[in-house]
Amino acid sequence: MANNTDLPNHLAVLIDADNTPPAIVEGLFEEIAKYGTASVKRIYGDWTKPNLGGWKKVLLDYSIQPVQQFAYTTGKNATDSSLIIDAMDLLYTRDLDGFCLVSSDSDFTRLAARLREAGLTVYGFGEQKTPKPLVAACDKFIYTEILRDDQDDADAGKAAKAAQERTAGNTPPIKFIARVIDDISGEDNFAHLGALGQNLNKRRPEFDTRLYGFKKLSDLLAAQKKHFELRKGENGGLWVRNKGE
Rank of each mutant, 00 (worst) to 15 (best):
Q69G: 10
P50Y: 10
S81G: 04
N77P: 00
A33R: 15
P50T: 14
K41T: 03
D80W: 00
E26A: 15
Q68N: 08
L83K: 02
D61S: 14
I24R: 04
I24H: 08
Y72V: 15
I32Q: 04
L59Q: 09
A38G: 12
V58M: 07
K57Y: 00
Y44C: 09
F29V: 11
K56Q: 14
Y62C: 00
L59G: 04
G54I: 03
L28G: 05
D46K: 11
Y62A: 00
N77R: 02
D80L: 00
S39Q: 08
G54A: 11
L59P: 04
S39N: 04
I84A: 05
K57P: 00
G45A: 10
I32P: 11
A38I: 10
V67P: 02
F29G: 08
E26D: 15
L60E: 15
L52N: 10
K57I: 08
F29K: 06
K76V: 01
L52W: 01
Q68I: 02
K34P: 05
R42E: 12
F29S: 04
V25F: 05
Q69C: 05
Y62F: 15
E31P: 09
K57T: 11
Q65S: 10
F29N: 05
L83Q: 01
D61K: 15
K41R: 15
L28N: 07
K57S: 13
I85P: 03
V40P: 05
N51R: 14
S63Q: 11
Y72T: 14
L83I: 02
N77W: 00
G45S: 13
K56W: 04
I64R: 04
P50S: 13
I24Y: 03
G53H: 08
L52C: 08
L52I: 11
Q65Y: 13
T74A: 14
T48F: 13
S81A: 04
L28Q: 12
G27A: 12
G27R: 09
E26W: 10
I84E: 02
V58N: 01
G27S: 05
A71K: 13
L28P: 13
I43V: 14
Q68V: 04
T74S: 12
Q65D: 12
Y35G: 08
A33Y: 07
L28A: 09
F70Q: 03
G45N: 09
I43E: 02
K49L: 15
I32N: 06
Y44Q: 06
P66T: 08
W55F: 03
I64S: 03
L59H: 08
P50E: 12
V40L: 08
L28T: 08
S82K: 09
R42D: 08
R42K: 15
F70R: 00
G53I: 05
L28S: 11
G27H: 06
V67G: 07
A78G: 13
A78F: 00
K34F: 13
I64Y: 02
G54L: 06
K76D: 02
V67A: 06
N77V: 02
K41E: 03
G36V: 04
V58H: 01
K76W: 04
G53R: 11
P50G: 07
I85R: 00
